[in-house]
Design a binder for these strands. Structure first.
Lengths: 154, 154
DNA sequence: TTTTCTGCAAACGATTTGCATACAC
DNA sequence: GTGTATGCAAATCGTTTGCAGAAAA
């Protein structure tokens, strides 16, 4: 498990919060810490986070988890992702989105989600910006198909 | 409004259904027809489809709409897309997905969804297939940012 | 005739909200 | 002290499901 300061420190959080008139609370701190500590998992749902909190005998309620996740997204600390299974997941937004973008490979058979660390969308973004006048801040790419283990059976 | 035979005819539907042991029903036919007739809109939600049916004084229930949409996706006739607003949309899957892929540009301010007709992901798919052994059947790309009208105000 | 499909209403699960209290500033 | 945040429970909303009757094969 990584230390807090590696990815996102308490003071970074306090700063971003107060910038926008929000308050620092132990709940928000702890929920963010869960993402930092589990940064190897990627994408956790609100229920996942809540389950971890309960294992720690935390008193934090599910509604607070949802509110904190929303807020952390608004601050650009987390990113919301949806895989089409009816529940949203959240991941740490790494410092420079241009550098660390990754894609999700979703297996239609076993429902596994594989991360693919590579971006290669800069050209496409430039093309789109030029043709449409759209200012792109972020993107989300999902590939659907069969993973190595399932491709034979389908 | 286009004629049925241009995009997807009744007999195509009957064929795909019976291939897999499903039955042709007027409900399924009508729901598909709505997509063909509104192919200029793209992505309609179940509620959108239901609203159109009600305007036509159809007796088709919402549950049937959901079931038909699922089925049409399973048959590869429709494609399900999610924009993160908590309700799924569906679009006609054009005959050859390799040819007609498009991307969605989602404006963070006015929530408008703009279609961008261009793909350019073949190289990326090839790279992923080679590196990960994942067999890609389909992909979904969303870009988040500000549209031409909103980019000044943000 | 047999099986699948439909419509309705009830159930469901993820997320949001109202409210009184507790806490950060 | 003031305004925001919390926890709880209830409400909401999109979607799914159970069931009895209707329709396709």
């Amino acid at each position: 498990m990584s230390e807090n300061h590696q990815l996102f420190g308490v003071e970074d959080l306090r700063g971003k919060l107060s910038e926008r008139g929000y308050k620092m609370t132990p709940q928000r701190q702890e929920i963010l810490r869960i993402f930092v500590e589990h940064s190897d998992y990627h994408h956790m749902s609100a229920e996942d986070v809540y389950a971890i909190l309960q294992k720690r005998e935390s008193e934090i309620g599910l509604a607070t988890v949802y509110r904190a996740l929303d807020l952390l997204c608004e601050l650009g600390i987390l990113v919301k992702v949806e895989f089409g299974d009816g529940c949203a997941r959240y991941e740490l937004n790494t410092a420079d989105p241009k550098i660390h973008h990754h894609h999700h490979l979703i297996c239609l058979k076993c429902k596994k989600v594989i991360e693919f660390e590579d971006d290669l969308l800069d050209d496409l973004e430039a093309t789109i910006a030029k043709k449409s006048g759209f200012q792109i801040l972020n993107h989300e790419v999902k590939f659907f198909g069969y993973c190595k283990d399932c491709r034979g059976e389908a």
